[in-house]
Amino acid sequence: MIKALVKILGLAALCGGGGIAHADLLGDAKRGETLFRDCRSCHQVGEGAQNRIGPHLNNIFGRKAGSVGDDYRYSKGLARMGADGLIWSFDTLDAYIENPKALVSDTRMAYRGMKDEKDRADLLAYLRDFSASPANIPESQPTARPREVELSSETLAIVGDKAYGEYLASECLTCHQRSGSNEGIPGVVGWPVEDFVIAMHAYKRQIRPHPVMQMMAGRLSDEEIAALAAYFEDLE
């Protein structure tokens, strides 16, 4: 896989540039602008944006929840989330827009939620452009998601011991159902070995965010990950 990638890139370079995107931008900001029409009756964003029914959304990325200032009055729940340390980021905004009441029970934002993941990503990519630019303020929030981890062929070539995998998998099956159900927690049954190994290493290196998975993967050796991968791939 790595070799193939190298070949393609080499070719692109010889052809004088262009190439493959290695990181994914948050979403399609242009499409997000269209989606923002749904929000515009309450929220303003851009030059001269003011608080209206909802607070303005300039510099929302990195802002503490409930802290726009200028005497804007938030719901108690939103103010409390801010006091508890909720910082608006791609992930927290994504969760909020998907289902506002899931994150802030008594929010006054009368919006049922945007169910489509890509819609949310595009909307947030649009909004991200109205917050601080990383080129000027390096600590400001990312504008893209890192690509999946690449692994050496040696790591990928470790052939997992299924029996050992079965033993290790017992811990996983506490949350990830044996049936392969995707309800609430994603299923891992029948995953191709390579996808599994890459995902686990991404957690292990804390590139994929999720505290529990980072903790779980963090203590697995390369061989253990290979063993788990071999086990789950063959499960039906």
Partner: peptide
């Protein structure tokens, strides 16, 4: 202050900071 960046077709993009 620091950050990691990767190339996209549009720009070099910040992926974490």
């Amino acid at each position: 202050v620091g950050a990691a960046y990767e190339a996209t077709d549009e720009k070099i993009a910040s992926v974490s900071s």
